[in-house]
Amino acid sequence: MKKISDLVYQPSRKRILSKSVFFSVIASASVICNAFSWSSKADAQTPPPVNNTEINSYAQAVLAMEPARQNAFEEIKKLISNGEIPKIVCNDSNSINGLPKKAQDIAVEYCTRAQKIVEDNGLSFDQFNKITIELQNNNILKRQVYNTLLRLQKTPEPR
C-alpha cells in the first residue's frame, strides 16, 4: 500500500537516487584510482584543467565500471557471509590477499576489467587518477562530471 508521503516526495527521491548514484560512482572511481596509482609522487604543480573530452571519457569509464564493481561486490559478499567486506584496493596486495581464494580471483578479475575499461574509454591510468583526485577538491569539476553522468544515463545507447 502506498503512503501519501510516497506520492508527494517521489521527485525528491528521484533526486536523492541520482545523487547517490553519482556519489557511489565517484567512490568507485576513488577505489579504481588507488588501483592505478603505482607510485605516490607528490606534484607541487597545479594540474592542467580537465577538458570536456576527458570529462566525457572519465564519466563513460566510471559508468562502464559500475556494473562490474557491483557484480564483483555481490559475488564477494556471498563468499564472505560472516560480515562486512574489507576495503579492496587493486594495487594493495594485502587487501586482496586477505580475501578467500575465490574472492581474490573475483577481485583480480574486476581490477583487470576496470583497467581495460579505462583504456577503452581513451584515458591513461594517470589521466584517470588525476581526474579522480581533482574531483575531491574541485567543485566545478565535480559538477561537470555529475552533469555528464546524468546526460550519459539519459541518452539512449546507439544500436
Rank of each mutant, 00 (worst) to 15 (best):
I76N: 02
E109L: 12
L152K: 06
R69D: 04
Q115F: 06
G83H: 08
R151F: 10
K116C: 05
P100K: 02
P67R: 03
V50N: 07
G98Y: 10
D43M: 09
K130L: 04
Q136S: 12
V62L: 10
N129D: 05
R69T: 05
S124A: 07
Q153P: 00
S81V: 08
P100A: 06
Q144P: 06
V145R: 00
F128N: 01
N147A: 15
A42F: 11
T112W: 02
E84P: 01
E75D: 08
Q153H: 06
V118I: 15
I55D: 06
N94L: 09
V108I: 15
L135Y: 03
K87P: 01
A107N: 03
K78W: 00
T148S: 13
N138G: 07
D126V: 11
E109C: 02
C90W: 07
K130W: 00
K130M: 07
G122W: 01
L135R: 00
A61N: 07
N82K: 14
Q136M: 08
Q136V: 05
A42K: 13
D43H: 08
A59K: 04
C111W: 01
I131S: 05
N91T: 05
Q104K: 13
I106G: 09
E109S: 14
I140F: 05
V118L: 12
N121I: 01
T112E: 10
I96C: 08
K130I: 06
L79C: 08
P86H: 03
N139T: 07
A42Y: 12
I88Q: 00
D105M: 09
Q115R: 14
I131D: 01
L63R: 11
Y110R: 12
A61L: 03
N56L: 12
P48A: 06
R113V: 03
S40W: 14
N138R: 12
A42Q: 12
A72M: 10
K78H: 03
V89H: 05
P100Y: 04
V50W: 05
F73S: 06
T112H: 13
Y110L: 15
E74M: 13
I85H: 05
Y146E: 13
L99A: 08
A59G: 05
I117K: 04
N139A: 12
T148C: 13
L152P: 00
I133H: 07
L63G: 02
L141T: 02
E119P: 02
I80H: 02
I106M: 09
T112R: 14
A107R: 08
L150K: 11
D126E: 15
S95H: 09
K78A: 11
Q45A: 15
L123S: 01
Q104L: 02
K102Y: 01
Q104F: 02
E75M: 12
T46C: 06
E75Y: 02
T132D: 00
V145A: 04
Y146C: 04
T53W: 00
L63M: 13
L150S: 08
Y58D: 00
N56Q: 12
K101M: 10
A42N: 07
N71W: 03
E119Y: 07
E54T: 11
N52Q: 11
N137S: 14
I85W: 02
